[in-house]
Nucleic acid binder design. Sequence first.
DNA 1: TCATTAAATTGTT
DNA 2: AACAATTTAATGA
Length: 228
Amino acid sequence: MTSQPQTLIDHLRATIWSRALTSAEMMRVEADCFEQFVPKGGYVCRKGELTENWVGIIEGLVKINNFSPEGKSVTFTGVPPGGWFGEGSLLKDEARKYDVMALRDTRVARMPRATFIWLLDASLPFTRFLLMQLNERLGQFIGQVESDRTLDIDTRVARCLAAMFNSHLYPGLEKVVQISQEEIGYLSGASRQRANQALQLLEKEGLLRLDYGGIRILDLEGLRHFQA
DNA sequence: TCATTAAATTGTT
DNA sequence: AACAATTTAATGA
């Protein structure tokens, strides 16, 4: 791997939401945020915990996950580097509603609640970013409800991957993810075998390339609009 | 550096 | 769900 280690500060300065902050605001953000390492399989946060931080992914990959009453694992979405989550629970001052688990060794950035609330009051651009993010998420989930009922699995897998590379939420994201096909199955609500079949079809269509332990996105727009 | 082994992941039925 | 094949990582000579 040739990826240069990115510091917490580097990463904060590279986020979309930090670009429009004043230098004074940025100074406080850089002073208050801290970094945490979560090994593969470890939890970034657990369902039911008090929400103390807004959380961003510096490096790695996490899944936002829950267990159905029967104990079956249901994954809602994957969050790649550049993604931030938890503002919902933070705004409502409530406990976390989901488990967040690292799919690989992951570095997360945490912004204390007080800093987040303060930014929300102080910075209109920051508030605008949150509105955009909430709107993108809403669109994603609405799309998922539709695809759950009407679309075949191949299309569903394609849309799930496209959603993970949402360019509004995660701009400039490297088009390579290390994620097992089993996890892609969880993401798209399919069995590993069916996900494998779908991935091979998408590879044949030239939309992505399968690697051992991961995939490379070749045509994001094509994935987004894929119809079986 | 190379060979061996275990573990993880993938492809197929 | 089960199985075989493949890739990677770890170990030690």
